[in-house]
Computed example of a mutant assay.
Amino acid sequence: MTTGDGDASPRWRGGGSWAAAFADLVVPLECAGCGRPRQRWCPDCASTLSAVPLTVRTRADLRIPVWALSRHTGPAALAVSAYKDRGRTDLARPLGAALAAAVDRLRADGEIAEADERPTVLVPAPASARARRRRGFDHVRQVVDVLAAELAGAVPTGPVVVAPVLEVRGRVRDAAGLGAQARADNLSGRIRRRPAGTPLRATPGAPVTVPALLATPSTVLLVDDVVTTGATAAQCVAVLEAGGLRVTGVLAVTAA
């Protein structure tokens, strides 16, 4: 991968980390979905994210397709919760890989363009600064980096871009328990475009600046961990399209 802000992150290369290895020694390893010992994510739980992506109907007004790997229940929901709120950052890899398999399936089914037809642009749904501090990392961005690496290493390949062009500004409430209208009000005016100079991570042949991205016909996917009412996705899509970036669809790990 080439990058607009220095050398590619190790996450793009798919390596582990000494911190994860140390954690394995301190905390007994168990499957995030079922608790099976000595496995991070067992084959049975992994199979819950390997079916045909679901087409999701949201309460928010989204006029583009919304896809999810699973309903937010069972092992899938437990894995997402463990990943973003209980320190299981090792789950970024299987979740990102499952999303990549879903992209392959959507291409095969003619839902989105093939890899070699146009660049694939992945826009991470933004988290508030408060949420990032609480978790210690940007949970959606980390999964998107894995997703991008998986797509870039696939055959046939095509240009891939990670475009972190959205941010949350101002104070927002925890969305848990909020209804569709309350979620929309909570985010109204707070999701905004980042400056045009925001660096993009891109493979060779892909746009490496925001102006170039806007001028290049692409498959643009907004990626999130969970779609609930669709309020967050709708706000993100509206901001992206107001800035000239046409969104193809929304892709999430689960749908509540």
Rank of each mutant, 00 (worst) to 15 (best):
V80N: 12
D109K: 00
V80S: 10
A77H: 03
V103N: 12
T120I: 09
L99M: 08
Y83G: 13
E111I: 12
L99H: 02
E111R: 10
R132I: 14
G136H: 04
D90M: 06
D116M: 01
A97S: 09
G74E: 12
V121E: 04
G96F: 09
S128H: 06
L95K: 01
R135I: 08
L95I: 03
I112E: 10
G74I: 12
R118L: 13
K84Q: 12
P75Y: 14
A101R: 11
P124V: 13
E111G: 02
R135K: 04
D116V: 05
R105T: 01
E114K: 11
A102I: 05
R132N: 03
A92K: 07
S81C: 03
A127K: 03
A77S: 11
A98T: 00
A97P: 00
R130C: 13
A113M: 01
D104Y: 03
V123E: 00
L95E: 01
R93I: 08
T120P: 03
P119D: 09
L91V: 07
A101D: 09
G110C: 15
V80L: 15
T120L: 15
A92D: 09
A115H: 12
K84D: 11
S81F: 12
R135M: 05
D109C: 02
L122R: 04
R105M: 00
R133Q: 13
A76P: 12
V121M: 13
R105E: 06
E114M: 08
A102H: 07
D104E: 15
S81I: 14
R133G: 02
A113G: 02
R132F: 05
D109H: 02
K84F: 15
D90P: 05
V103R: 12
E117V: 10
A92C: 07
A131D: 06
A100P: 00
R133N: 03
V103D: 13
A92G: 04
A76D: 10
R135C: 03
V80M: 15
V103H: 11
R105Q: 02
K84W: 11
V103Y: 13
A100S: 02
R93L: 11
S81H: 14
A98H: 01
A82L: 07
A82H: 12
K84G: 10
R135Q: 07
R86V: 03
L99F: 08
R135L: 05
A115D: 07
V123Y: 01
P94D: 14
L122P: 01
G136E: 07
I112L: 15
D85K: 05
A97R: 04
G136A: 08
R132D: 09
I112R: 14
Y83W: 14
R105H: 00
V80H: 15
R133A: 14
G87W: 06
L106A: 13
A101E: 06
L106V: 11
S128I: 11
L91N: 06
D104F: 05
S81G: 10
D104A: 14
P94I: 14
D116E: 14
E114W: 10
A113C: 01
A115K: 09
E114N: 07
P119N: 09
R86G: 03
A97Q: 01
R107C: 02
L91W: 09
G136Q: 05
A82P: 02
R88F: 05
R130V: 15
A79Q: 14
R88C: 08
R93D: 11
A131I: 04
A125R: 03
P124F: 06
